[in-house]
Structures are given as C-alpha cells and as structure tokens.
Amino acid sequence: MSFVLVQVIVGGLLLGAVYALFSSGLTLVWGMMNIVNFAHGDFVMLGMYVAYVVYTLMGGGPILGAPLATLVLATLGVVVYFALIRGIMKGPMLAQILGTFGLALLLRYSVFWWFGANFLSMPPNIVGGTYAFAGLRIEASRLLAGVVALLVTLGLHLLLTRTSLGSKMLAVAEDQTAAQLMGIRPDTMQAIAWAIAAGATGLAGALIANFFYIVPTVGETLGIVAFVTVSLGGFGSVPGALVAGLLIGVIESLSGYLIGAIYKDIVVYVLFLFFLWFRPQGLMGKM
C-alpha cells in the first residue's frame, strides 16, 4: 500500500469521526422521538458561531468555546422542545418536516441578519498545529474532534444503557403511556433528550469551527451529511452513527482520491441505496 493511501485513509477516518460527532445529536432525537430535525445542520452552525463569538470576545481556544457552545445549544434545545417540538410531535411526519424546516430558515437567517454573510474563520493553528508521525500528518484540531467524537458516542451509549435516566428516556421512547403509568414524566425526559442532543451538536459545531469556515449557510452542507450518516447507521443508534460516519469518511476520502472528488458523493449515495436494499433498518437500527 502506497504511503499516500495511508494518509488518505487516516484523513478519511478523522473526517468520518467528525461526521459521527455532529450526527450523534440527530440520531438521538430521531430515534427517541421519531422526529426528523431538518434544522440539525443549523444547530451545528449555531455551535460554530457561539465558539467564534466566545473566541473574539474572550480569546482562548476551544477550552472556553466548546463548553459554552454546549451549554447555549442545550438551552436552545430545551426552548425549541417546549416551544415547537412538543406541539408537532403528535402531528403527522409532514408537520415535523414543516416545523423543523421553518425553524432551520429562521435560525439560519437570524444569524445572517446579525452577523452578515461574510465567511468567518478561527485563526489557523488555534488548537496547536499539526502532528507529524513518521511522515503522516494529522491536524491537532481534527484529532481533538475525532477523540471527542469517540467520547461523546461512548458517553451517550453508556447514558442510555447503564443509567436510570437512560432507562427512563428509553421507556418514554418505547411507550409513553406505560412510562407515564410508572411515574415517569415524558415531557421532562424528552426535554432532557433535546438538551443532550442539542448540546452534543453545539459541541460538535464548536470543535468543527476550529478547522472549517463559518458562514450562516454552512448548515445546509453539513445537514445532509448528517442525514445520510444517521440513516446509514440506523435511526436512534449512537454507535451506529459512529460506524456509519467512519465508513462514509473513509469511502469519501478513498473515492475522492482514487476516482475523483466530483464522484465521491455519488459513490456514497449509491452505496447507501444498495445498503438499504439489504438492510432496510440501517447498520445498527432495529426493525
């Protein structure tokens, strides 16, 4: 195997981890509440802007920006849940698309109105340059995002499978009425799920901001990637999103390098469609 190919694969894995990172929040609410959040990409965008504002006001790297972005977005998640999601959850799937798409436009263009349309960017090397291991080059900011992706996945998975809060949330997801009879308040659980999901998304945005550009419409680009990642991984499966993200990252990198970048998305979509043929519930989704 040529040396460049190793760099391509490593780059693909890091890219995939980033995909997984900003998809985990989407898969959580999608699976827990059966809600398609068309505004997901714009939550990532908000996370990026929070990190940027924190940086310009107070300086400091991701140490300050990332927790604040998590906090702000988690709050926003709760607000969105009570103001909008609770009302449209019981409606048909179309109402959810309608509501979250409207929300996406509202968020995107509110930011646009406030910050303007210029491309913003964190200063280069804000997280500490690039590591070189035996000729392999890995950007510190991407590595940080990758590591956090693994931690977030692990954390969410443990939360859902090993804690009583997790079991309560799952109980609500399985059967609201039954959960209510057992004394669990569905509203509280779902609000918490939204806080966690939006918080994780804000964290993702803050970390991506370190090596990406920041612009109000960036959510459009990222949102569709998150959708494919989540459906490939299986709605509601956090580990599924991680595996799917890594898979897509490597496929994109390899096909981009070997057959040309303009075909890499075609490769991903076609593979995704073939995959759905054999496993209609996604990688790790349940039937």
Partner: peptide, 16 residues
Amino acid sequence: GLTFVVYGAIIVLIAR
C-alpha cells in the same frame, strides 16, 4: 435575510 426570517417564522407557526 429578513425574507427568510419572515418566511421561516410563518411556516413554524403554521406547523406548530
């Protein structure tokens, strides 16, 4: 971007 703020808000309200 006010066009889409208005447009988005109306869609959200109707959906809600």
